[in-house]
Design a protein around this nucleic acid. Structure first.
Lengths: 113, 113
DNA sequence: TATACAGGTAGTTTTTAGGATACCTAATTT
DNA sequence: AAATTAGGTATCCTAAAAACTACCTGTATA
């Protein structure tokens, strides 16, 4: 694949990073790679995220069809978030991100504590 | 690879996205995957970036040893930015990002113009 | 002579992401 | 009856990211 495919190939990088970037989206998607998670499970595992931020990020991921919200029980309410079938496609990319990070982040961050 | 390696595997996603994320860094790295580029080449190809932002982003990428700045001619001054040897390792990841994006961004962005 | 290009810096302002705080319904537990 | 859990919403606020504007050195070009 040639990235040289000028504005085509580069804009796509920005688009993908819109989806996966920011402080939380990558982490949320990474957690959902394993298995579906409930709202408060995500909240616990994403240390320090607030309810309102988590809600916003999940709504965004729903809007772009990466994640779906499923009410699995009505009363008491139980909600589950999972990757859509289409969203599953992100797993590979997340694996590559993790792989690169495990190999290289120490070098790259050596001077940054 | 198991992402389930709890906080280990997830924190690394955030770290990598720190490097590659934001509005410009991914695009800058993607452009430098092809070949070295001069300051104003980058500025032209990254439509709408300002000099000061480009300078900041390049300085950051230099600090973390992903990119190096090389004065290739003194007078008149000619400066070239290229991936460091270590920075080259990002190529694969960029390719995966582009690959995923080309396959999936239409679906994902179908409702977003 | 003056205008443009190359490669920037400095200072200020705007925009945006994310955080803080408070609050909501309904059920369950103490 | 009161507190806790589950799953949020609404509003405001702040800190950081990026943009805007102006300016700089030095060379080449018209």
């Amino acid at each position: 694949m040639e990235i040289k495919t000028k504005q085509q190939g580069i804009k796509v990088v920005a688009d993908v990073l819109d989806i996966v970037g920011g402080k939380w989206r990558g982490q949320i998607l990474a957690h959902l790679c394993d298995d579906p998670k409930r709202f408060n499970e995500l909240k616990t595992v994403l240390n320090r995220i607030t309810s309102s931020t988590l809600t916003k990020e999940l709504r965004y991921l729903e809007d772009i069809k990466m994640v779906e919200r499923k009410i699995i029980q009505d009363t008491p309410i139980v909600v589950e978030y999972r990757l859509t079938e289409h969203g599953m496609s992100i797993k590979d990319l997340i694996y590559h991100i993790v792989a690169w990070g495990l190999k290289h982040r120490d070098t790259v961050f050596e001077k940054k504590g």
